[in-house]
Write a protein that binds this DNA or RNA. Structure first.
Lengths: 194, 194
DNA sequence: CTCGTAGGCCAACAAATGTTGACCTCACCG
DNA sequence: CGGTGAGGTCAACATTTGTTGGCCTACGAG
């Protein structure tokens, strides 16, 4: 609260544990979901006392909010050729899921926790919607198309990273992208069906 | 345990509460997921004592197992014309999701609970895989295609019934089916892409 | 009428969990 | 050297949750 007058970073040694807590929290939330990821377990993973978690992040919700911040880093729509947006989006998404547990954590929490669901709605609204806008002329259709794209991408992540359906796990990212890209491409650019 | 020798139904009045418990359990599991659906809350909804739940279903896992039994009632593949399987599957799925909360309950629990995830794998294996078998000549490709179909169907259910993305909720089932059917159709019958 | 028993409730236990406050320790500044 | 405050630990709290066992009640068979 009391902002130090010196702009120099006063961080003695706490930054290390702060990030250790966040890393442990991400792992636990990804593996167990919100309810089963206990503060005590996270603290033990970070090799500190549970009360430290509270001091740094206030409460469990605050910890979750701090641990799971997501930037999808979607490619600039303007730079994408219209007929390759599907493939570009899919490969980008798969890469993001493979490289960190944050998305798995968010998906797990989003299905059981109201705050988590709202967080996902926020990401959808601020990051996916704008991209869809670029490729669909009729603004009336943009939200539905963006939601369909999300449904396929999240659905594949669900079966592969959360439910772990063996065939979905077995697909390598190349094959998966080859299957999913046309779907996403169609949702974004094809005319309204029927 | 002690089977009555009289074949006449000895049920005095318990069957009513048994099903009341199951209904309440389905509602709670669907709304809250496994962890946050408490036995006490379920019992209160069913207007009985929590200990009754234990007596009838042993423990919480037993209750979940009894409450969430799913038969997708997939249409007979043999009766489906090959080029309409996509639309038939999608409309059937949407109808099932709309008519009861069991699927929502299973999806919510599947994402946080190992037993729930395995239950979903079982349904996939025993009900979706066989259907895909009918439409794909190469047995090598059947599991992947079935998983892709599941990913799109579950993904749409996720965004619509669990995460409640507004555009996904706003779509009426007709529109949704029109968008999703070609995707499912392609996953089942189109040649391997690229 | 009597009494066994199924259906049901009440009270309690043990464990786990989020959260709090007192205390400790030691680097650093005056 | 003294003390101030940040980084950290410990023990405890109140609550919730799954689960258990004892007790009550009424109905139907003998």
């Amino acid at each position: 609260m009391t902002a130090g007058k010196t702009p120099a970073p006063p961080q003695r040694r706490s930054e290390a544990t702060r990030t250790a807590i966040l890393e442990a929290a991400r792992e636990r939330f990804a593996a167990d979901g919100y309810e089963r990821a206990t503060i005590r377990a996270i603290a033990k993973d970070a090799h500190i006392d549970p009360s430290m978690v509270m001091r740094y992040y206030g409460n469990k919700e605050g910890l979750f909010a701090a641990a799971v911040t997501i930037d999808l880093r979607l490619p600039d729509p303007a730079a994408l050729p219209r007929d390759e947006v599907g493939r570009a989006l899919v490969t980008h998404f798969l890469a993001m899921w493979e490289e960190s547990e944050v998305l798995t954590a968010l998906l797990r929490v989003g299905t059981t926790n109201q705050a988590g669901a709202e967080r996902m709605q926020g990401i959808f609204r601020e990051q996916v919607l704008p991209l869809a806008q670029r490729f669909c002329p009729d603004p009336e259709q943009v939200p539905a198309r963006a939601a369909l794209v999300s449904s396929q991408l999240l659905g594949f992540a669900l079966t592969r990273y959360v439910l772990r359906f063996p065939p979905a796990v077995a697909l390598d990212t190349q094959e998966a992208a080859a299957w999913l890209a046309p779907t996403v491409q169609r949702y974004l650019t094809a005319p309204f069906p029927q």
